[in-house]
């Protein structure tokens, strides 16, 4: 059975959401094992400091249910004037209901609100729930050689944290 599409409410995350956000991150990461990236499922956790920075900078949002419980989150950062989308994850029990779409829309709106020229992210091309979602919202795969140095540095830093360099692409959406 396919769960009905919902239009979730999205609000800025608070410190009280952090535990649930970390739980969603781990639960969503488990799906990477099935597409040949067990190292993401079993390790390569996103550092807590990234989430804390997102809270501090107002760049962490949660999609919530009627009881105000986070079902998914979006985490971004500003890098050299670009809006860098660190991660969007949705709890596996609530995927395929439009929550990821709603979070992408929120992030695009906020980047526009901040007058950013473009949104940038890195993702695994083989993860259909990820690269396809971003393509649907206007992201295009970018040529690594033509990206600003600070973006490439962030990509390399993510690789150093345990994300695979092979098969991971950078996508850009102009605003």
């Amino acid at each position: 059975m396919i769960a009905p599409t919902i239009r979730p409410e999205i609000r800025p995350a608070t410190i009280d959401d952090l535990q649930q956000i970390l739980k969603i991150e781990r639960r969503a990461a488990a799906a990477f094992a099935a597409i040949g990236y067990p190292e993401i499922a079993d390790g390569a956790e996103m550092p807590l400091a990234l989430f804390e920075a997102g809270l501090e900078d107002g760049l962490l949002w949660v999609a919530i249910d009627a009881a105000d419980r986070p079902l998914g989150y979006a985490l971004a950062a500003m890098i050299d004037g670009f809006f860098y989308l660190e991660d969007i994850s949705v709890d596996p029990d609530h995927q395929r209901r439009g929550i990821g779409d709603a979070l992408v829309v929120q992030v695009i709106d906020h980047a526009k609100f901040l007058y950013c020229p473009a949104l940038v992210l890195s993702t695994l091309e083989a993860a259909p729930w990820s690269s396809a979602l971003y393509r649907k919202h206007g992201f295009l795969a970018a040529d690594m050689d033509r990206l600003p140095g600070a973006i490439v540095e962030r990509f390399d830093a993510e690789t150093a944290l345990g994300l695979p360099a092979q098969g991971r692409i950078i996508m850009v959406r102009r605003l």
Partner: peptide, 27 residues
């Protein structure tokens, strides 16, 4: 000034959240 305004938006996140603000219109 785009960068200055970005710094402003970042700085107001905390007080807006603390007092229960919601955006009705913005961009």
């Amino acid at each position: 000034d785009m960068e200055g305004y970005q710094a402003y938006v970042k700085a107001i996140g905390k007080p807006l959240a603390k007092y229960g603000a919601k955006y009705v219109t913005r961009g």
